[in-house]
Amino acid sequence: MKWLIAAFSVFAMVVAPVVAHAEEISVSVKGMVCSFCAQGIKKTFSAQKEVEKVAVDLDKKIVSITTKQGESVPDERITQAITDAGFEVVEIKRQK
């Protein structure tokens, strides 16, 4: 039994980091019509330690956030960051 628990623990330690996916967050934003004005969004999210990559699509009015593996950014923080940049969140979608 002890041997089984030890084996499972080692397995969990090896496998857990591999299955901890990055999160793809898609934020629909109102008022984002100009790249110069939207620089604040990129700057704010890029400064967050959980965030790996930020991309802004002005045509689709979407901010795409890719987190680091195993990390997440709560909706409240996303909404606050978009609001602080002067814009309005319409919808937040998540995909692992």
Partner: peptide, 12 residues
């Protein structure tokens, strides 16, 4: 102008 607005993003 929006681009030259005296108020930008928080901390900017």
């Amino acid at each position: 102008s929006a681009y030259a607005n005296p108020v930008s993003f928080k901390g900017g």
